[in-house]
């Protein structure tokens, strides 16, 4: 059984952050809050990685910096966490870029409102263009075969005008 030393508190903190973040991602109804929860979960995971190299009484693995007699901590988790942090930053920046575009297209980031607006858009699109390919209510929920803009050469045709989705 574990005793509540400083180390266990830190360890539980790392795991707790991961759990809080994961829970937040599952229950949020707002896309930006989901992103914040992701940031929390990632910091939990990153903290756990750094902690795997923790060594009681160890010093930073830099030669000539500290007490040469003291034992150094494991350098590998520090490298891993640097990599993981940079990956996290990249993913989060991309997520923010997507959210900006989603907000510009639909005017909301609330999951339920977003769903309503997307459905309304599909209905409107179906009403305006009685194209054969537009009448596709799949799996109970109306889903359109995504009118495409600027497919950048992947061979899909672009039937809808560019700003067809803007409110």
């Amino acid at each position: 059984m574990m005793s509540f030393t400083f180390e266990t508190v830190v360890l539980i903190g790392a795991l707790g952050l991961a759990v809080i973040g994961a829970l937040g991602m599952v229950i949020s109804n707002h896309l930006f809050r989901m992103l914040l929860a992701l940031a929390i979960a990632e910091s939990g995971a990153n903290l756990l990685i750094v902690l795997t190299g923790f060594r009681a009484g160890g010093v930073a693995p830099i030669l000539g910096a500290g007490d040469p007699a003291a034992s150094m901590v494991d350098p590998i988790p520090q490298v891993l966490v640097l990599t993981a942090i940079v990956i996290g930053v990249g993913v989060q920046a991309l997520a923010v870029a997507l959210l900006i575009k989603v907000y510009q297209a639909y005017g909301t980031l609330d999951v339920r409102e977003l769903r309503d607006r997307m459905d309304a858009d599909v209905a409107a699109a179906a009403g305006v263009e009685a194209d054969a390919s537009q009448d596709a209510p799949a799996g109970g929920r109306p889903l359109s075969p995504a009118p495409s803009r600027g497919t950048a050469g992947f061979g899909r045709r672009s039937p809808a005008p560019a700003d067809g989705l803007r409110p």
Partner: peptide
């Protein structure tokens, strides 16, 4: 790449 609002929402969910 498709660039529609719908595909951006789908991408965001995929990313999450």
């Amino acid at each position: 790449l498709t660039g529609t609002g719908r595909s951006q929402v789908a991408t965001f969910r995929y990313l999450m």
